[in-house]
Design a binder for these strands. Structure first.
Lengths: 207, 207
DNA sequence: GCCCGATTGTGATAGAATTAACAGTATTTT
DNA sequence: AAAATACTGTTAATTCTATCACAATCGGGC
């Protein structure tokens, strides 16, 4: 069974809110509450939850702790996955710092760069290795996801190396779209595009 | 006429590639070439271009320069829009640095923070103001979009101030979903969710 | 000058995602 | 205990998005 992408995203988001609820001591939550937190509808929430086969105590809302568990069962891998950040510029550093400490089954376990000044430096407890050792480290550490934050002009080349290292998931923060084989899951995120989209809708709203 | 979100995103992406083509001296481009660059199909490209009412010289592909112009006419505002980054932590700094110098009709014109050590500092040529002056500066500088990179626990409060300042578009990099009025265009981007999604599909691929 | 091959533009169609509608059920009220 | 209430789970309808299929067009080869 493979869930739609959007559903997976929403589940991840729900879980975050649910964890928050737990901290606040809330044990049950209604579909409409969850919906309101996430800019969508109660029906959408129920449908998503139906997808994963969880069913609540009727009329009391969903059991927060249980639902977290079920979502975890769907999203998480048994032992978590290891993640590498490739390219330790400003953005790479920021992302690394940002992630460390966030409770998650996804661990940033190494960073890579070509700059000799950066190699062996430790950022938020994560060590930087030379890019040339990518394959070696991928094998020895068991890295399955790469976050790419290299400059645009080396993106294509580096992405090739990432693929050859056997990494199966890529989050691309580069401004150039990457070319990948079918067996690599690739998610492109482009801040400029996001901003331009916002600008477009703001413009519409203003006119 | 209001385009679908997804189309707007793709147009922004196409434009980037087209600008790249221009630099390389390529004057015309076929729909299937553009498609290949962007992980989608030639039909999709043609459909998107149809949406914006541009029509090519048949059989020669699209005129790169013209198409850039037409997309610009759709996406860009007359004089560009001014953007503020709110919260100058690692991520805020990275984003600010990242944007400056990128040719774009969107200018990061100010940053804001509450930390006295950060105020008046200049990052990549952009000055940091105290958050308390948000409304004042929004009015005087004409800020219409905010990029939120504040810590999760102040996100709700700060977003309120952003809304009250009259900002009409928000890009939220915070891990908490924001509550906004109908007249504010809000785009939530959550790295953890993105990574969890990738992890999910990688897991599926591996099993 | 005419045909062939390549490419665009678009109506029709299929597919995915969302929303509506409502039956079912536990809880509270009377 | 029956009725009203307030939810969930699910089927059906709808709407939105992407793809198919093909007519129309143009340039180059003959």
């Amino acid at each position: 069974m493979t869930l739609p992408e959007r559903t997976v995203e929403r589940l991840s988001e729900y879980r975050r809110s649910l964890l928050q609820c737990l901290e606040e001591g809330k044990t049950h939550i209604y579909s409409h509450e969850l919906a309101e937190l996430h800019h969508n509808t109660a029906v959408q929430v129920r449908r998503d939850i139906m997808f994963i086969g969880y069913t609540s105590m009727q009329r009391k809302g969903y059991d927060v702790r249980e639902l977290i568990g079920v979502i975890g069962g769907i999203l998480d891998s048994e032992k978590g996955l290891n993640v590498a950040v490739i390219g330790i510029g400003n953005l790479g550093r920021a992302i690394t710092t940002y992630f460390v400490g966030k409770r998650s089954r996804l661990n940033i376990i190494a960073t890579f760069d070509v700059d000799h000044n950066k190699i062996d430096r430790v950022i938020s407890g994560v060590k930087c290795y030379p890019l040339s050792r990518l394959k070696e480290m991928t094998d020895s550490l068991g890295i399955s996801i790469a976050i790419m934050t290299v400059p645009a002009d080396s993106a294509a080349e580096v992405s090739q190396q990432v693929q050859e290292a056997g990494i199966k998931g890529i989050m691309n923060f580069t401004t150039v779209p990457l070319k990948m084989g079918q067996d690599v899951y690739l998610d492109e995120y482009d801040m400029i595009t996001s901003l331009e989209k916002i600008a477009y809708f703001v413009k519409l709203g203003l006119s």
